[in-house]
């Protein structure tokens, strides 16, 4: 085997085979794989990640103590960043309608609360949601590309996406082909994201890496870089169908990818941890992380979202506890 390694853009870190799988360059060795596009080859090498160091850093975020005004402000921000989600086989128009109402009226007995950022549904439910939300400030996000597995032909994924957009989706949450990624076909993943981005038109594209299947933080980082360079407006941890989902370590790794891209290009990319964030405390720790890694510019639902279904009520309970001084019961908050 030849030892020639193609020159990637030595933009900011030297080339390392740890970061870029050699199989990406399989064509060099006479294998019949599609040739990576120049855009793909221009993605800078990803830095390696030491997982224990990431764990220590994340533990540090969790020692931040958020009290009083900062807590109240933080909790309201969290509510306003939620993509209220239902992604089940048993979803019905009735369920989606209820959720859309709740999205705009989180807890009417306590005035002054923001709405959530968006509702997140399957493509078949986008039309229902659009009817309910009309021109509300709450956005509609639709999963697509044969969510959650992504195991469908390209034509189906494109059609899936176009359908959701035509039904009124403001945002598309696509899944990447994890199998291809793990097989080293990173250029395939790149091309697929780029194609979906085109199909999105004006809708913003969130790219779900499904980090629970990527196995290492090095892979999470590489997948983040690929997604960002292929045109993602947001990168998102998980479908919510696979554990572990949005751990702080994964989110931190993805935030660092966003940070590096921003430092290099000045372009902001959004972040959406999804799955597993069900308590106010964890959500606030995520905000601490966003503030300290990316800065306050990212602390709005334009750039940061939580993909969650049960988080909203926990935040509401915390807000009411802070207001009244009484510990709250879930029975006082509507479930849907």
């Amino acid at each position: 085997m030849g030892s020639t390694i193609p020159t990637v853009n030595f933009d900011w870190i030297s080339f390392s085979t740890e970061c870029v799988s050699l199989t990406e360059f399989g064509f060099f060795y006479g294998m019949s794989k599609p040739k990576p596009s120049p855009q793909f080859l221009s993605i800078p090498a990803s830095p390696s990640i030491d997982k224990v160091g990431v764990e220590e850093r994340c533990a540090r975020f969790q020692t931040r103590s958020i009290k009083n005004d900062a807590k109240m402000q933080g909790l309201k921000m969290v509510l306003n960043m939620i993509d209220l989600t239902t992604l089940e086989g048993k979803d019905t128009p009735g369920k989606v309608r209820q959720m859309c109402y709740k999205a705009q009226h989180l807890h009417d007995s306590y005035p002054g609360l923001p709405t959530v950022a968006a509702v997140c549904v399957y493509p078949s439910m986008v039309g229902i949601a659009r009817k309910e939300l009309k021109d509300s400030i709450v956005k509609i996000a639709s999963v697509s590309t044969a969510f959650p597995s992504g195991q469908a032909p390209m034509s189906v994924k494109l059609e899936d996406t176009r359908f959701a957009v035509s039904e009124g989706a403001d945002e598309i949450d696509m899944v990447i082909s994890r199998g291809k990624f793990l097989a080293g076909e990173h250029n395939f993943v790149f091309d697929e994201i780029a194609a979906i981005k085109e199909a999105c038109g004006k809708a913003r594209l969130k790219v779900i890496l499904e980090t629970g299947e990527l196995s290492t933080l090095d892979n999470v980082r590489r997948a983040s870089d690929i997604a960002i360079h292929a045109g993602a407006d947001f990168i998102k941890t998980s479908t919510g169908k696979i554990q572990p989902a949005a751990t702080m370590q994964v989110t931190y790794t993805m935030l660092m990818a966003i940070r590096d891209h921003y430092d290099r290009t000045g372009i902001m990319i959004g972040m959406k941890p999804a799955g597993g964030i069900s308590t106010s405390k964890l959500a606030l720790h995520n905000l601490v992380m966003v503030k300290e890694v990316l800065g306050e510019k990212w602390l709005s639902n334009e750039w940061f979202r939580f993909g969650a279904s049960s988080l909203a009520n926990d935040v509401l309970m915390q807000i009411m506890k802070t207001e009244t001084g009484l510990y709250q019961s879930p029975e006082y908050f509507s479930m849907d």
Binding site: R64, S65, I66, K67, N68, D69, A70, K71, Q73, G74, K76, M77, L79, N80, P114, T115, A117, D135, S136, I137, V138, K139, L287, V288, K291, E296, L299, S300, N301, E302
Partner: peptide
């Protein structure tokens, strides 16, 4: 459509 934002001011940690 109005904007949907809740952090018009910055977010500083209160003393703890």
């Amino acid at each position: 459509k109005t904007t949907n934002k809740s952090n018009e001011k910055g977010w500083e940690y209160a003393p703890s």
